[in-house]
């Protein structure tokens, strides 16, 4: 059964004002233009992964990092304010499945894997997420020629 994570969040942060979750009644829609086996697919993850030579993330950070598709996941670092990242540390694929997508590319399950994956960590502010982070990510995906995007949260 699904867990009431909104309620657990209220309990967990009971000393603060209740978090106001985004609530949408409609969603945009773009059909997949062709079979996935012909599409260039990009991976996005909100686990706060970055490479040693990149600036670390920080609290309230609306930026993102490009992770080249051939990156050895063992070299990734993690910055995140609040997630249980022991498993993600042991095997980033459980929230950032770059190895699996590389295999899918080799097997033809997807047409191609975009040259970079995109990593960030989610903000508390829905407004900043949409206004500050999303435009840059959309531009990166266009530059990467992505025809579909797979997003994995933590």
């Amino acid at each position: 059964m699904p867990i009431a994570y909104m309620e657990r969040t209220r309990q967990r942060y009971a000393q603060y004002l209740p978090y106001r979750w985004a609530l949408n009644h409609e969603a945009p829609w773009t059909p997949l233009p062709k079979p996935l086996g012909d599409c260039r697919v990009a991976l996005l993850g909100s686990g706060g992964f970055y490479l040693p030579h990149q600036p670390p993330f920080h609290e309230g950070d609306a930026s993102y990092r490009l992770i080249p598709k051939d990156t050895d996941l063992a070299t990734l670092r993690i910055y995140h304010h609040a997630y249980r990242d022991d498993d993600a540390d042991r095997d980033p694929n459980c929230v950032f499945p770059l190895d699996r997508l590389r295999e899918f590319e080799a097997a033809g399950v997807i047409g191609a894997l975009a040259d970079s994956a995109i990593s960030f960590l989610t903000l508390y502010s829905a407004r900043r997420e949409v206004e500050e982070r999303a435009p840059g990510i959309v531009a990166e995906l266009r530059a990467l020629g992505a025809e579909a995007a797979v997003l994995v949260p933590v």
Binding site: N24, T30, A134, A146, E147, L151, P153
Partner: peptide
């Protein structure tokens, strides 16, 4: 994550979100 997916989709790139928080995802509606 769903909020970002909505903006990507709005820009013409189809998206797929994984989720383990049914209530949050149902509300954000990617």
């Amino acid at each position: 994550m769903g909020l970002i997916a909505r903006e990507i989709e709005r820009a013409g790139i189809p998206t797929l979100c994984l989720s383990s928080a049914w209530d949050v995802t149902f509300a954000v509606r990617p």
